[in-house]
Computed example of a mutant assay.
Amino acid sequence: MNQPQDSEAYKAKKRFFDSLMTIYGRKTVLEALQEKAVSIYRLHLANSNKRAEILDQIIELAKLKGADIIYHERNALSRISKNASQDQGVAADLQLPGYQTYEQFLATPPKNNYRLLALDGITNPQNLGMIIRSACAGNIDGILLPLKGAAQIDPLVIKASAGTLFRAPILRCQNLVDALKDFSRHGASLCALSSHAHHNLSGFRPEGASIYVLGNETHGVSDPVFQLCTEKIKIPMNNGVESLNVAVTAALIAFRDVM
C-alpha cells in the first residue's frame, strides 16, 4: 500500500521550522535580539519567571521585532530549550539567513566551486565557536554540522563565535557520512586533514566544489568518514610539532586564498 504524500503546505511548513535556530539563556537571547540582522519568530518564557530587568529588555526587543511571545510551564519550556539546567526560563526561535539543512544548500548552492568545512566529532564548544568565527570571516561557504556526535549550539559556542554564529552559514545534517555521500554524488571533492598525508594544503587547488573535513580534537577524522575522502592533505609542521588546534586549522583553510 502506497504511503500518502505530504502536501506542499506541510512541506513548506516543515522547511520553515527546520530553518529556525533555538537558543536559550537570558544573556544569550538578549545579545541575539540586540543584533540588527537577527529575526525572531517566537520568544518562549517560563510562566514561573520572576520580574527582572533583563527579562523586560528581552520582551521589549522581541515585541519590536514582531515575535510571538508564549508562556509555558517550566517542564514544557525545558523541552523546547533541551537544557532545563541552563535555560533560565528563556528560549527563542531565531530566523537566520545562513542556518539551513544541507539539502537546502545542495538544492541551490551559491556557486559551483563552493568550499565547506565538515565537522567530524568536534566536541569542544569553544573550538566550535572559533571555527564558526573563522569560517564566517574567511572564504568558506558553509559549515556542515551534524546534529549528533558533536558540540551543539549553546551559549558557550555563541560566546566563542563572538556573535558571528548569527551570520554564519551553518548546514545541519543528521549524519555526516550520509551527507558527505550526498555531496560526493553532486560532484564535491571530499578532503580529510591528516598529519600523515603526502600532499600539503597549499598545493591542493580543486577546480570544483570541495569539502574539508576536520576531525575530533583527540582522535582526528573517524574511519568511516576518512574512507569516503578521496583527498588527504596536511599542514606542514616545524620543530617537532605534530598537530594544530582544530580551530587554528579551520582558520588556515578559511583564509588560504584571501591573504
Rank of each mutant, 00 (worst) to 15 (best):
L156Q: 09
S243Y: 01
S195G: 08
G25C: 10
A150N: 15
D120E: 06
G215C: 04
R51Y: 09
A37W: 04
C191L: 09
I170M: 07
A67S: 15
F16G: 06
E8S: 15
R205A: 12
G98W: 00
G66N: 07
A168G: 10
E8T: 15
I140G: 03
C229F: 10
I143V: 14
A192C: 13
D56G: 04
L171A: 06
K63Q: 15
I233H: 08
A76F: 03
D120A: 04
N175W: 07
P236Y: 12
E231R: 10
G149V: 12
L33W: 12
C136L: 00
L144G: 08
P110Y: 07
A162G: 05
D257I: 10
Y24S: 13
V258G: 02
A160V: 03
K234L: 06
H72R: 08
T249V: 15
E242Y: 05
N75C: 03
M130H: 11
I235K: 03
Y41N: 08
N47K: 15
T249N: 10
S39H: 15
I140D: 02
C136P: 00
G187H: 05
P125Y: 03
A160L: 02
A67C: 11
P224E: 01
P97L: 12
Y24P: 06
E53P: 01
D141Q: 11
G149Q: 14
L144Q: 12
Q104L: 01
Q5G: 10
I59M: 07
G129H: 07
I143M: 10
D56F: 04
L61V: 11
S134N: 06
P236L: 07
A188Y: 01
V29K: 05
H72K: 06
V225K: 05
D18M: 07
I58H: 11
P169M: 02
F16E: 13
G203Y: 05
R133G: 07
E73M: 09
I70G: 00
N83Q: 05
A209W: 01
I23M: 11
R167M: 12
P125S: 12
I153S: 01
I253W: 05
R172D: 01
Q34F: 08
